[in-house]
Design a protein around this nucleic acid. Structure first.
Lengths: 230, 230
DNA sequence: TAGATTGTTAATCGATTAACAATC
DNA sequence: TAGATTGTTAATCGATTAACAATC
């Protein structure tokens, strides 16, 4: 009893409709939960059931999914396996993407070793560093290019995604070069605010920010404990 | 010409007033920019100036700061060095915190090597793993305890912060144990939704979610390019 | 005083949640 | 049909931004 879809799995109006960025983030979480359910042999899941596992509101889950199409059956719920595949298509994790890595220091080489990129279809295609000679040993079987080659290599290989793992000082220049070379998605590890053209999607991973957030909470909590006179 | 403060640097009403969580995140960013400005020898900065460097709205910056006190001088701006110190106090990065690490595998040992924790006053005080014997080699000078010792060690040493670097499957159990032992701040690297008691602050670092977000953007963009018939 | 910039209130914007008609 | 659950509209909530009086 497969769900009938009145619309295509990837609505034409994705481009037109404004989808909250947090909704895309949640889509990934739903995908994980559906995988779990599938492994447990569960065939059908309701928004209430997904809410229990994810901690999100059931109405929010239905709305998030409805941005992209009608995937459920009223009175029944969502077919687990089918919905999971739909989400994988929407998120594009079934596709392969070439990635450029800029910065081959400690962090850069750790990222090359991290298996998560491959698992999501991202494949390191080229590595760039300010001092390519010094870094060559670190990288596995990838040649390390100097920054001068960045534009040429990225254009000729049609690379559209880049990982930035350079020091904060140099990051803006690198990002500008990447955008100019045709990259449209950047995962940035440099701990600094960056500006990019509107057509470039920038995501920041900044452990310092997380740590300071927790530090704030701990001192706030300590102050509160102190006030109550312990 | 130091700014006069009508209120204490840490307002008594921090606990009462509802501060957007995103505001605390921005506080860290302001701190970084103030450090840069200080190093450049700049003495005074306006909200407009900080907006230029951070990309945030000037009104938002003033409002964020005003949650915690009156730190500016009307008609003049904010004294760079003084404001920076105020933010460091608010964020609590001047304090030292003991940290428990749970999970001493690949990720766990990489985190122990990462200098950012020390830089923010976090010091690994105890390491726990399901298989403490196998992991002992990895850790530098820290003993690795079995999970059975978690509650006792954390309580006796007064540890209030923990880093979770275990597989997704085991994370919820670990988090429950940590909360029960008295931990109130958790930095989680396990890629799974977790539930914690209300008094525990949980922050998630999940590279997969970032990668899927970028994957979504890339496929959306590819689809759009395709439609326009290139 | 005139010009500048803060702190704060009011208006806007966007995202979440509740409610319910549609429909399996 | 009766019960269940979706998809969607309307109401609520919270966060951002504009505007401006306060004041340096």
């Amino acid at each position: 009893m497969p769900a009938r879809r009145r619309s295509t799995s990837l609505r034409a109006d994705i481009a037109r409709q404004r989808i909250p960025k947090a909704a895309v983030y949640r889509l990934s979480v739903y995908g994980r939960i559906l995988q779990e359910l599938d492994e447990e042999g569960v065939r059908v899941a309701s928004s209430a059931g997904l809410a229990d596992r994810s901690g999100f509101n059931p109405a929010q889950i239905r709305k998030d999914l409805a941005y992209f199409g009608e995937f459920g059956i009223r009175g029944v719920g969502y077919m687990v396996r089918e919905l999971r595949q739909v989400l994988r298509d929407i998120l594009g994790v079934t596709q392969k993407w070439k990635v450029a890595l800029v910065g081959a220091g400690n962090l850069g080489s750790a990222l090359m070793a991290y298996q998560g990129f491959q698992a999501h279809g991202f494949c390191f295609e080229a590595v760039f560093d300010k001092y390519p000679r010094d870094r060559a040993k670190r990288t596995q079987n990838l040649k390390v290019y100097g920054m001068g080659a960045l534009r040429r290599i990225i254009r000729s290989r049609g690379i559209r995604m880049a990982v930035v793992a350079v020091p904060a000082k140099g990051a803006q220049v690198v990002v500008d070069q990447l955008a100019e070379a045709g990259v449209t998605a950047i995962l940035n590890f440099a701990p600094t605010p960056l500006s990019v053209p509107p057509h470039v999607k920038l995501r920041n991973v900044d452990l310092s920010l997380e740590l300071e957030g927790l530090s704030y909470y701990l001192s706030w909590e300590k102050r509160r404990r102190g006030q109550r006179g312990r």
